[in-house]
């Protein structure tokens, strides 16, 4: 129990330190690397909550591939962020009030892992029993993700697909597009004439 507390306190302290460093830094590459480190600590946080699949996703997607993509996209940004001078009192105050409300609300949440809490009473018992009897897969996360919630995962896959296609269309070489459209315009003009 006490060791769990120490680990959680350590992770929260590291997360806070990274968040404060993120606020202070004005260099783009440091921002990207600190975001990656933040994701890695978040993955450790998920491991302490026994959510191994989520931790795996956070480590591979959040800390791994998104950092690489950010670094690849970083080439088009200026090296340093411009210093913005303005009144930051109201944003800071609203953040503090929102955080205080969230912390206050968290006292009403049921204890983590409590069997009698509503979230574990609704469909979770069916999934836990059905994953063994109907599907026969030891990893309940996979059976929920791919079978019980197959529609949602299908939607997710299509979202990834659509986002990828959209970015590809946006980033296509501009010369090619202009040539194609030019030839199309020429054809149209020729037909009209």
């Amino acid at each position: 129990m006490i060791s769990e507390l120490i680990i959680n306190a350590f992770l929260v302290t590291v997360m806070l330190a990274i968040a404060i460093a993120l606020l202070k830094t004005r260099t783009v590459i440091f921002t990207v690397i600190l975001t990656s480190a933040y994701s890695l600590v978040a993955a450790l946080m998920f491991i302490t909550l026994d959510a191994v699949d989520v931790a795996f996703t956070e480590a591979s997607v959040g800390a791994g591939i998104s950092t690489v993509l950010f670094l690849a996209a970083m080439a088009y940004l200026p090296k340093k962020e411009e210093e913005t001078i303005g009144n930051q009192f109201i944003p800071a105050l609203s953040c503090i009030i929102l955080g205080a409300i969230l912390i206050w609300c968290s006292y009403d949440l049921p204890q983590i892992g409590l069997v009698s809490s509503p979230i574990h009473q609704h469909v979770a018992p069916d999934y836990i029993l059905g994953s063994r009897n109907d599907i026969g897969i030891p990893n309940i996360v996979t059976s929920v993700l791919a079978s019980y919630r197959g529609y949602d995962t299908f939607g997710e896959t299509i979202v990834v697909f659509t986002a990828g296609i959209a970015v590809l269309v946006l980033l296509q070489n501009k010369k090619k597009i202009s040539k194609d459209t030019k030839s199309k315009i020429k054809k149209k003009v020729g037909r009209n004439a």
Binding site: V52, D53, A55, F56, T57, S60, V61, G64, I65, I137, P138, N139, V141, T142, L145, A146, T157
Partner: peptide
Amino acid sequence: HGDFGPGGGFQAGVI
């Protein structure tokens, strides 16, 4: 191995 341990399509695709 996603059926038996942590993992699945999303993580494997990224790796």
